[in-house]
Every structure is written in C-alpha cells, then in structure tokens.
Design a protein around this nucleic acid. Structure first.
Lengths: 185, 185
DNA sequence: GAAGTTTGATAGACAGTGTCTACAAGGTGA
DNA sequence: TCACCTTGTAGACACTGTCTATCAAACTTC
C-alpha cells in the first residue's frame, strides 16, 4: 500500500479515536511510521491531507443514501434525515472536520464535489415529496437548503451540548421528529 | 481601566478584525501592550479569556431581544429569527467562537448562563406564537429547540459557504423565509 | 513608620505545531 | 555509467500555550 493512502487511513483512525485536536501532521506521521516531513511529499500541507479525510466523510454520507429503507418518497426522505443525524452523532469528529473551514481546503475539487453531491442527492429526495411548502409554490432547491440547514443545525447543536438544561434534556430524535413535522406537515 | 478588561476588549477587536485564527494569547497581549505572560495573571488560560469574549457575544445576542420590532408575538418571533441570522452573518468570527467547544471553556458559569439565557428567551418567544405545531400538541420547548436549530444551521451553512453551487446561490434571507413558512404555517 | 505579604507584570524556558530546506538513497531511462 | 526524479529523513525556523523564577509596587498589620 502506498504511503499516501496509509497517511489518509491513519489520519481517519486518529480522527475517530482521538478527535479533531489529535489530527496533527506530526502525529499522523508518527502513527503511520514515517518521519515528520514525509507527509509533505504527498500533500501540499495539512489542509490538503485533512481535505482528503473529509472527502471520505462526505463519500460515506453519500453512500448511505443508496440503502435507504422505505417505499414512499416521504419515507425515504425521513430515513435520509435520520441517517444524517445518526452519522453526525456517531462520528462527531469527522462531522466537525467536514465543516471546519480552517482545517480543510475549501477549494479542493474532490472535497467540494463530494459536498455538492451530498446536497444534490438530498435535493432530489426533497423534490420527490409533495410537502405543503412545495404545494405553496416555494423553490424546491430552497426548500431542500432550508431543510438541510435545519437538520445540520440539529446535529451541530446537539454535538455542541449546550442545549441540555437542568430540566430540559430532550433526545435529538424527538427534536428531529418536530422538525420533520414542520416541513412535511 | 484594568488590564483584565482591556485584554477582553483587545481580544474582541482582534476577533472582529482578523478572525478566530488571529485570537492568540500572545497576539492579544502584544495588541494590549503587555508582556506575553501577563494574560495568565488574569485568566487561567486561553480558554478562560476566550470564554469571556464569547460571553459578550451571547450578551449582545440577548440585548437584541429587547428592541424587537413588531406588534404581534408572531412578528416579534420572525424579527428575532432575522436578528439571529443577521448577527451571525455580520459577526462571523464571534459566531464561530461562540460555538467552538475547543476554544472556549464550556464549564464556565458565566458563559453557560449567557447561552442558556439566549435559548430561554427564544423559547418564551416561540411559546407565545400559536404555531400549527403547538396546536398539534408538540412540546413547546422542543419546538423552540427545533426552530433554533433550523436557524442556527442556516447561519452555519451560509458562513460555511458550501451551499453556493454554480446555478444556485440563494440569499440566506430567502432560505429563512422558507424555514419560517415551514414552522409558522 | 517598618516589616511582611499579596498582587501584577516581566522575561526566559519548554514542548509541541506546520512548514521549509538540505541531504541521502533508490529507481528509471538514455 | 550517468543524469534525473521520486521518496523519505533530519534539522531548523517561527509560531503557539503554558510554567517558572524574578522583581517591583501596593496593601496589611503591628
């Protein structure tokens, strides 16, 4: 196996095991068994390596769309929403990395393509469902963006952890149910 | 003016002017005209200083709630949502800092109190509006959390910048309009 | 007023970070 | 054989946050 690929693999494991803070260029190199300068032979810098890792995250998110349960478009959309939230909660470090502009090179073609693909397939899913919003004539892409943002905010806010007050600690799924109620009627 | 306060002020300016990356302990000290070790006499570490800065952000967000235009509860709620989005888009660095667990001490009492206050007043605003969700018997705090998450995701996704595809670059306000439509009917 | 103590600020050090450069080893093709 | 390119190494540099020793000023207490 090539060193480049091993670096991406090692970084992914390090990310999942020890969080975003642990994904340091030197740490990855040591874990992969190479010198601290070796990664720069394969990547222009840290951002490029982490972009490759984040691209994997988007790819996995996308692959989940292929095995969505449910018969109706509406069921498939709700399944996709649950899948998104589930991914974020189970891979918090990867999810954080995917949306950290400072760690990742937003101009990276593979990365932005993977991110766009995630949004596009989500938009297709939304367009297939006759929501009240769609019936009232709203732009379907805008509805998709709005719903995705709602979903994304749910994941982000729950990972953030600040919502849990003393007498109010709802499950993310219950909040998602409310969100889906709002959009799907 | 005390050094402690000047450090917070300087950090706030540095944050607004040069972004989250520039808010380094040594940079703040230099900008404030003190030695690089001086901040540690007033804060236990970087996280504590940045927590004080972030607390200001929540305080400002809260103060905007006092001057909301609109007569009906519904108008006040939509104004609050626009205000939240507007704050995030105009103070991107502060907004980012406020939700970066790695830069801020989540256990800081003043910080968590300020954050809770923002959510609580938002929940009060939501509770005063007879949304379709409320009429269907959903938990009002849950509705507030869901709507806040939608709002938050909108801000985050727009600051992230990845939404703007080639043929699809909507304004955040248009997406907010769709979101409010979904929740308020 | 004098002595002791606390507070505020300073400079130096240390480990850790990303990145740059010089250098060495190994393969490839002329 | 010889030049060239790729891959990897080791060292350096400027940063970062944090720790420690030092020092001066202010405050407290007798």
């Amino acid at each position: 196996m090539g060193t480049r690929q091993r670096l991406i693999d090692t970084a992914s494991e390090l990310l999942a095991d020890s969080g975003v803070e642990a994904v340091t260029l030197r740490g990855i190199a040591k874990a992969a068994g190479v010198s601290h300068g070796a990664p720069l032979r394969h990547f222009s810098g840290r951002a490029e390596l982490l972009s490759a890792v984040a691209t994997r995250g988007y790819a996995e998110l996308l692959s989940r769309r292929d095995t969505l349960p449910g018969n109706s478009p509406r069921e498939r959309l709700t399944a996709a929403c649950h899948s998104y939230l589930d991914f974020a909660l189970k891979n918090p470090a990867m999810f954080e990395l995917m949306f950290r502009r400072d760690l990742v090179d937003a101009e990276d073609p593979a990365l932005s393509a993977a991110a766009s693909a995630v949004f596009d397939t989500f938009a297709v899913l939304v367009a297939a469902v006759p929501t009240p919003l769609a019936r009232s004539g709203a732009d379907l892409r805008l509805v998709a963006a709005s719903l995705w943002a709602a979903l994304h905010g749910l994941a982000q806010l729950w990972l953030w952890g600040g919502l849990a007050g003393a007498s109010f600690a709802p499950s993310p799924e219950s909040a998602l149910a409310v969100t889906l109620d709002a959009y799907l009627g």
